[in-house]
């Protein structure tokens, strides 16, 4: 006789945590997608329509999307290029715990405060410009804040995200077992070979995660690019906000939101795929 499988009560325990998240995420997603197709309007008629999708792909949209994407990608890559060697270097030096604590400060500085602090430095009469002029590198102060190239926003993002990646990379590198490194040295590997053959491949998954997380945080950013970034293009989040609140055009805003998610997902999948390829 077949026994009926006992109901697994463990699933009920998932409700408070997973249930809460799923409910709100699905709700947001549902409202967003529905509105992008003209449903779920608060005012006016609610009916299926593709007009919003036909009109969303404007010049501004692509410029803003590209701005957010570029800033996110550059932030993630520049940060890891700074963090990885720094984490390696930090393994050996005396007082590394103190260094790590100090380095963590920007992580605990609210994004907007970070933005303001850095803007101060790079502004028209900020210390960087003053020093550069005094040293004679430039005649006139540079415009780094709200500059059209978005360097200001990039610097703020890097400032804020380096500690975040540091924590991940430092502990990943620290977690490589000493006897495994010893074994490699024992078999004839010099420092460079140990780095290339042992430490890099073992910590690669962590680096992958670190890059993805910083990318997503930066890509979704609104406040930093609003305060330190250029007036045009702006971040894609800002474009969404603008459409919804300034123009009252929630449907187009929803289309932008959907595109934003699609871009994130495509990028993360592509990036993961490429990294796996490289790792093998």
């Amino acid at each position: 006789m077949m026994k009926r499988r006992k109901f697994e009560w463990g699933y009920l325990l998932l409700i408070p945590g997973i249930g809460y998240i799923v409910f709100f995420v699905i709700a947001s997603l549902y409202i967003m997608v529905a509105q992008s197709f003209g449903f779920y309007n608060y005012t006016g008629s609610s009916e299926f329509s593709l007009t919003f999708w036909q009109n969303v792909f404007t010049r501004t949209f692509f410029d803003d999307l590209w701005f957010s994407f570029r800033t996110a990608l550059l932030t993630a890559l520049v940060s890891i290029v700074i963090c990885y060697p720094l984490s390696l270097l930090m393994q050996k030096i005396p007082g590394r715990k103190t260094f790590l604590s100090i380095l963590k400060i920007p992580m605990f500085v609210p994004a907007l405060v970070a933005s303001f602090l850095i803007v101060n430095i790079i502004d028209y009469h900020g210390i960087i410009n003053i020093v550069l002029v005094k040293l004679g590198f430039i005649e006139e102060p540079l415009r780094l804040r709200n500059d059209p190239a978005g360097i200001g926003a990039l610097v703020v993002q890097i400032w804020k995200n380096v500690p975040f990646q540091m924590i991940i990379m430092y502990s990943a590198i620290e977690a490589v077992r000493k006897d495994v490194k010893d074994a490699a040295a024992n078999l004839g590997a010099n420092r460079f070979a140990i780095l290339k053959e042992i430490i890099l491949p073992i910590t690669l998954p962590s680096a992958l995660v670190a890059v993805i997380m910083v990318f997503i945080r930066t890509f979704n950013d609104f406040a930093i690019s609003k305060t330190a970034g250029p007036y045009y293009p702006t971040s894609i989040s800002n474009l969404m906000y603008l459409h919804a609140y300034t123009f009252g055009d929630w449907n187009t805003s929803a289309c932008i939101g959907v595109m934003m998610m699609v871009t994130s997902i495509v990028f993360v999948s592509f990036y993961t795929y490429i990294s796996k390829k490289i790792a093998d």
Partner: peptide, 11 residues
């Protein structure tokens, strides 16, 4: 060449 008590294989 050492054979480690903890093996120390490259994971």
């Amino acid at each position: 060449a050492m054979c480690f008590q903890s093996y120390a294989l490259f994971p």
